[in-house]
């Protein structure tokens, strides 16, 4: 059973967000352990650049494993303030530590997102 930390918020596309999203907050996002397990060894990550605008629910990158490819959906609307270069250079970090070293982006949110799921709701989706 994949680990789903209580303190994070989730999307039904298997992204996680640290903390509640309110306008002006900088949030960290990544993909869940369930997603990395389903993809297998991730070998390529394409992410937006610092300064790019991303929109909640829209594709902002992609993740590729030997077996499959999956799109990355932004869980929030805002501007990218930081990209985890370590993960772009060594995508295997995602398989090892999806919620820690495997974070993908920091985004300065321009609007609140009330549609995120809590751990219990997300667990119900992937169960």
């Amino acid at each position: 059973m994949a680990n789903i930390p209580d303190e994070l918020r989730y999307t039904d596309e298997h992204e996680w967000v640290s903390g509640d999203v309110s306008a002006g907050a900088v949030v960290t996002i990544g993909i869940t352990e369930y997603a990395t397990a389903a993809l297998g060894d991730i070998v390529y990550v394409e992410a937006p650049a610092v300064g790019d605008t991303v929109k909640a629910g829209e594709v902002c990158g992609e993740l590729e494993s030997t077996k499959a490819v999956s799109e990355l959906y932004s869980p929030v609307t805002g501007v990218v303030t930081e990209v985890n270069q370590a993960v772009l250079d060594a995508p295997e970090i995602l398989n090892r530590d999806a919620y820690g070293d495997g974070w993908l982006l920091k985004i300065k949110a321009s609007a609140a997102n009330t549609k995120l799921l809590n751990a219990e709701q997300y667990a119900a989706i992937v169960d």
Binding site: A37, A38, G40, D41, V43, S65, T66, K67, E92, N95
Partner: peptide, 22 residues
């Protein structure tokens, strides 16, 4: 193993790392 349905059979798609297996 992660088991998936393949050609009507429930079979292992990978155990831990498909790259390491390869």
């Amino acid at each position: 193993a992660s088991l998936i349905e393949f050609a009507g059979w429930l079979m292992p798609v990978r155990y831990s790392s498909d790259l390491a297996e390869h």
